[in-house]
Amino acid sequence: MYHPFNNSVWVIFFFCNIIAQVISHSDSVAEMDSIEPQAGVSVADDYGPYACKGMENNSGGGSGPRPFKVVCRNKKENASMTCNFNGNPHPCSTYNKNQAKFYKQLLDKVGGFVQNNKQCGPPTMEAKICPDIMYKIVR
């Protein structure tokens, strides 16, 4: 026998399911967006259970500071952390000629630190190709 209540429950269930899928999709997109570079050089590598991606933000242009954002995702625990650093690499002529190598060396330091300490760091770091240029963690 048809009862109007049965039909209403089904409609509510259907719409709740659609809303849950939309929310789940938007969370996934937001997580991916947080890993995408804002502008500039992007480097990535794995460090033990962590997949790390580093991005230079050159949205300010010119020869000023270049924030460096690193997102490391623990592939086993499905958790991630974001580490932000700031420094000005422009006084180093080697940086100007090989920016990807510079940021890869910084990423290697962050990735190694995250793998060993399970937290953002180190507090300060430099790339081998520009040992006089210090990047500091932004807390």
Rank of each mutant, 00 (worst) to 15 (best):
M1T: 06
Y2W: 04
Y2R: 04
Y2V: 08
P4Q: 08
P4Y: 03
F5I: 15
N6R: 10
N6F: 09
V9F: 13
V9T: 13
V9Y: 12
V11Q: 10
V11G: 06
V11A: 12
V11Y: 10
I12Q: 05
F14K: 14
C16T: 12
N17T: 15
N17P: 04
N17Y: 14
I19W: 12
A20F: 13
Q21P: 01
Q21Y: 14
H25Q: 14
S26H: 12
D27V: 11
S28L: 05
S28N: 14
V29C: 04
A30E: 11
A30I: 06
E31C: 00
M32Q: 14
M32N: 14
D33H: 10
S34L: 09
I35D: 09
I35F: 09
E36Y: 00
P37F: 02
P37Q: 03
Q38R: 10
A39W: 03
G40V: 01
V43F: 00
V43Q: 02
A44R: 04
A44T: 04
D45P: 09
D45M: 07
D46L: 09
G48T: 04
P49D: 07
Y50N: 00
K53N: 11
K53I: 12
G54S: 06
M55I: 10
E56V: 10
E56K: 01
E56P: 03
N58P: 00
N58L: 09
S59V: 07
G60W: 05
G61A: 13
G61E: 06
G62F: 01
P65R: 08
R66D: 08
R66I: 08
F68P: 01
F68T: 07
K69F: 10
K69D: 13
K69R: 15
V70S: 03
V70G: 02
V71Y: 09
V71D: 08
C72N: 06
R73V: 13
R73E: 02
N74E: 02
K75Q: 10
K75P: 01
K76E: 12
E77C: 05
A79I: 11
S80Y: 13
M81D: 09
T82C: 00
T82D: 00
C83A: 14
C83M: 11
N84Y: 12
N86I: 07
N86L: 07
N86E: 07
G87D: 15
G87R: 04
H90M: 09
H90A: 13
H90F: 15
P91W: 13
P91N: 12
C92L: 11
T94N: 08
Y95R: 04
Y95E: 08
Y95V: 09
Q99N: 09
Q99P: 08
A100Q: 12
K101R: 12
K101W: 04
Y103V: 13
K104I: 05
K104L: 11
Q105E: 15
L106E: 13
L107C: 10
L107S: 10
D108S: 15
K109D: 10
K109A: 14
G111Q: 10
G112T: 02
F113V: 02
V114W: 00
V114I: 08
Q115I: 00
Q115C: 03
N116R: 01
N117I: 00
N117F: 01
N117Q: 10
G121M: 07
G121L: 08
G121Y: 05
P123G: 15
P123H: 06
E126H: 14
A127H: 11
A127Y: 09
C130Q: 10
C130G: 07
D132G: 08
M134P: 04
Y135F: 15
Y135V: 08
R139M: 15
R139Q: 14
